[in-house]
Design a protein around this nucleic acid. Structure first.
Lengths: 110, 110
DNA sequence: CATATTAATCGTAATATTGCTATGTAATAA
DNA sequence: TTATTACATAGCAATATTACGATTAATATG
């Protein structure tokens, strides 16, 4: 039915999935990388950097902001975005835990 | 138009997004965690473990297999799945690189 | 005030995803 | 052979996502 049955999974599984979904679009990956690279608040130049229309970028930014991965503050007519360190570190922890399982054990089936 | 413009992004960005999309559903997170936990090939018990219908699980497994994150081999009437170590390590590397940027620098905008 | 700039929102079209039932298929068991 | 078991596939309905043009909201600047 196009709807995810979140209630049958653990909070951790849902949280990993939510963050992963945010990373699941190249535009959002590019946006986050650009924010990191510039080390500073950026605003409309994302539209130029990435070749997507302004409303599309704005929508991706909104998703990232809703999840808490980035923060945005208004400066005059423009809005500056930056990484939300707390949430980012949480994501880092979750993914490390999820990805760094000992895959050497899993060779029982070739 | 509901379609991702992959061509305007780098291979790395697209690869991160593809893998992240696979992690972007709690059922697939649960499946992967279960395969890791059991350390051995599992088959139909995923349907019991997770509360989804067999065709639904089968579909999620197919996605993970198509991406290369897991492998499956037939054993009698059942099919055993296991982590594809090569691909998993690639994912680990990509996500580490992506997530472990120094977020301390990014405090210029509060 | 009028106007420009910047970004958010609305509405829409195209496409993708999730999950199911029903059915098909391949291997084993009786 | 027939039945059973274990999965896969097809088809479908509900919903979500992606992307854009048009518009709106808010702040600057002349």
């Amino acid at each position: 039915m196009g709807i995810t049955k979140s209630e049958i999974f653990t909070d951790q599984q849902n949280e990993i999935a939510l963050i992963a979904k945010a990373f699941g679009h190249p535009a959002r990956v590019a946006i986050l990388q650009h924010i990191f690279k510039k080390q500073t608040c950026i605003c409309g130049d994302l539209v130029q950097e990435i070749g997507l229309a302004q409303p599309t970028i704005s929508q991706h930014l909104k998703e990232l902001k809703n999840l808490g991965l980035i923060k945005g503050n208004v400066e005059g007519t423009s809005v500056c975005y930056c990484i939300n360190k707390e949430k980012w570190d949480e994501a880092l922890g979750l993914f490390k835990q999820f990805l760094e399982q000992d895959s050497d054990k899993n060779t029982k089936c070739k």
